[in-house]
Design a protein around this nucleic acid. Structure first.
Lengths: 249, 249
DNA sequence: GAGCATTTGTGCGTATGTATG
DNA sequence: ACATACATACGCACAAATGCT
């Protein structure tokens, strides 16, 4: 590796009443908040940063310790330091609607239908919809984004026969809620959500723009209309680094 | 690998009104249910099984497909077939008590306190307890088991000062509920649970008797007494293959 | 799996500045 | 003016974890 010759950081004042490590912490915090280090990105090594600021590595580490304590970054022995990702809360309740949840946290929701078709229902999906396993059901794959970043990948299964035109509606309209409305379901509620975790397939990792070495949260959920009839069983895969499911009671 | 010389499976009847693949599926199902293939264990290869039953691999695959559809096993291209693990449901609600939940599914709950002590509160824990990050709090690490198999690993943090003898109580009594009762909290309720997933540390994987390549579910939760004061912030790590968190609404 | 380079974690010694009594 | 205690800063060395070959 080529050694960079850097001029010592300007603006650092030695012996000016404010400890060096505090000035460094403030500088790094500003850079992170300004987006000069992207969420999840790796920071330069301690050696590089201490060279940049013209201080001993201990001094730099004191600043990093402060930022880690305050949750702005996370260090991993042997790997490096990483800017904390901005984790979005995803509350699970009777009224679980992607767009509303994302907007409530001042992010811009978006969605895209990737594929529609028909598949044999997996055992879990069949159980949720009250069908025998292997029964063929219509499905739609949808990618949800928050501020343009992939957030979740959902496969929505619809009870056979009940919504013959749902896939057409979804083709024009990437919102499940609105497609259901067009199919005569003005409102629905979340009945049950089952949560587990596993590693992503290569395709899932690619779609979620996530490392294959990081897990995904897997949710199986059932939505019902107001009469209690199932309208949709959805299997959603969340990027574990970007979503935190929240249950309040 | 040494080739085993096996006698062709007896008991399989050709042309007897019941398709060979159905007989094979029934045989394998019986073996799995009888515990001859442990949950999570890898089955013999399709080649080995088709040799054992004296059938073509296509016939065997038809039987496997049936079992996979019914959720008894799962096949992974290039890796093999695996007996589905028996996943325990873990409902999250106001009254979330480990022992009751496990017993409700006809398993035998158990627990062990691994360590007690004092640590600087992580940012998330501090926020739940309403403390500043880094404040030192008493904690207890507890391993929970179901039918003798590790199920979850929890670190329980207690608000400073309020329960001076809680760690002593826990040393004699591996139940958090009972230790809190001894400290004057007859009842409590779950206020909030935040769920995410990550890879386990070597220690976590060892404690949970789980492969390091499989993720864990990470729950941060707050329990309050009946007056709404926090009594415990707990960070629980569940073996993702053995636990499925359930939210009903 | 062994070996190696990279990176963070930890410990010890030393020196200086600053606040307190 | 002096002693003490604490925070800050630097230098060196090695341990431990990770990733790659």
């Amino acid at each position: 590796m080529v050694e960079d010759f850097v001029t010592p950081e300007p603006g650092l004042q030695r012996g000016a009443g404010l400890a060096l490590w505090r000035q460094i912490a403030a500088t790094l915090e500003g850079e992170i908040r300004a987006g000069r280090h992207a969420p999840g990105a790796r920071l330069p090594t301690e050696a590089a940063l201490s060279a940049r600021f013209g201080v001993n590595r201990h001094t730099l580490r004191r600043a990093m310790e402060e930022l880690e304590l305050r949750g702005l970054l996370r260090t991993e022995q042997g790997r490096g330091s990483f800017v904390a990702e901005d984790v979005l809360d995803y509350p699970l309740g009777p009224r679980t609607r992607f767009s509303e949840i994302i907007r409530a946290q001042n992010r811009e929701p978006a969605g895209r239908i990737l594929r529609v078709g028909e598949v044999a229902a997996e055992p879990r999906v069949a159980e949720l919809l009250g069908l025998r396993p292997g029964r063929r059901v219509a499905f739609a794959d949808r990618l949800s984004l928050a501020d343009g970043r992939p957030f979740a990948l959902g496969r929505h299964h619809f009870p056979p026969g009940r919504f013959p035109r749902i896939l057409e509606h979804l083709r024009e309209e990437p919102s499940i809620t609105r497609a259901l409305a067009l199919s005569g379901v003005p409102d629905y509620r979340r009945r049950i959500t089952r949560i587990t975790a596993r590693m992503p397939s290569p395709e899932e990792a690619a779609m979620l723009e996530q490392s294959r070495a990081r897990p995904i949260l897997l949710c199986e959920a059932l939505n019902e209309d107001l009469e209690g009839r199932p309208v949709e069983a959805v299997v959603t895969r969340y990027a574990a680094g970007r979503a935190q499911l929240v249950v309040e009671s």
